[in-house]
Nucleic acid binder design. Structure first.
Length: 288
DNA sequence: AACCAGGGAAGAT
DNA sequence: ATCTTCCATGGT
């Protein structure tokens, strides 16, 4: 049981963060209280950490607390990474003020990238969400977590890979997974359990190495890896050109009568480096 | 009623 | 190597 006040550099729009997280029914958000509860694995044990907003857009501050017996320093370190408290958005916004995304960055001023709570759940979520509309995708992940994960202090934890590796395709089909999706989720979990893939080790490698290792897994293609790099590992310069949402957003931005080609997207994105992840983030918002 | 969805594998050229 | 089809189901 502990708590600590953490002040960070603005701008940081926590209310936007909460509204966004609310789209996924698995997130423990309280808009009235301006709080978020985060499920964490610390020292191989599940712990719930609560974040409460105390500040405002330009002077953000948070009360971070936990009733779990867990290491305070490690917990705050993990939360800082997930909520990207160590990434100042000032440079980013300044950079985009001279690009085609100027207006988009004004609209989303102070909106940070938010990571998934751990790389494995990010990977499972990506596989489950492949090729599905967002509302059904969230239903599927919700069933997945409610069936095979667990709840602690009102917060849902994704299952560990050992649990999913031990399932049969039929058990996931029962949740309305396709046969393929079920095979992917189980197969990837098995690769993690048997040590073929270590997501924590992978995180430290160059992006090309992460790509070449993960692409071998059945069910893991370019889109899934890009999403893991962005939302699992928090890489700041990722642009998922294979994503339908990004393509539609660019079509809308540039008033195209068709989706942009890969070559066109490579050209558009150049001025947005090295903050491509934020460009992608706000482009997604622009079509919601 | 079609057509698409914040893809990817397997089969067919 | 590149193009096409299939997967399952909900949303529009």
């Amino acid at each position: 049981m502990w708590q600590e006040i953490v002040s960070i550099k603005g701008p940081y729009n926590f209310e936007r963060v909460l509204e966004r997280l609310l789209l996924d029914p698995l997130h423990a958000v309280n808009l009235e209280e301006q709080t978020l509860k985060i499920p964490l694995w610390l020292d191989a044990k599940p712990a719930v950490v609560e974040i409460k907003s105390l500040g405002n857009l330009e002077n953000p501050a948070f009360n971070v607390s936990s009733t779990s017996e867990t290491d305070k320093t490690k917990a705050i370190e993990a939360v800082t990474k997930i909520l990207q408290w160590d990434q100042s958005l000032l440079n980013t916004h300044h950079h985009f003020s001279q690009t085609d995304l100027k207006e988009l960055f004004e609209i989303h001023y102070g909106t940070p990238l938010i990571l998934d709570f751990d790389p494995y759940s990010c990977l499972m979520k990506c596989i489950i969400h492949q090729q599905l509309n967002l509302s059904f995708a969230h239903k599927l992940t919700e069933r997945f977590v409610h069936t095979f994960g667990f709840e602690k202090e009102g917060v849902w934890f994704y299952p560990q890979p050992e649990k999913i590796a031990s399932l049969t395709v039929e058990e996931l089909r029962a949740l309305q997974f396709s046969g393929r999706k079920a095979e992917y989720a189980i197969g990837v979990s098995k690769a993690i359990v048997n040590g073929e893939i270590d997501l924590e080790v992978l995180k430290e490698l160059p992006e090309e190495d992460i790509f070449s290792k993960l692409i071998k897994l059945k069910g893991v293609g370019p889109w899934t890896i890009q999403n893991l790099l962005m939302f699992g590992y928090g890489k700041p310069n990722l642009f998922p050109t294979g994503d339908i949402g990004i393509q539609n957003a660019l079509k809308k931005l540039y008033n195209l009568d068709r989706k942009p080609t890969l070559e066109e997207m490579e050209k558009y994105k150049q001025p947005w480096e090295p903050y491509l992840s934020y460009a992608a983030l706000y482009l997604w918002r622009s079509i919601e």
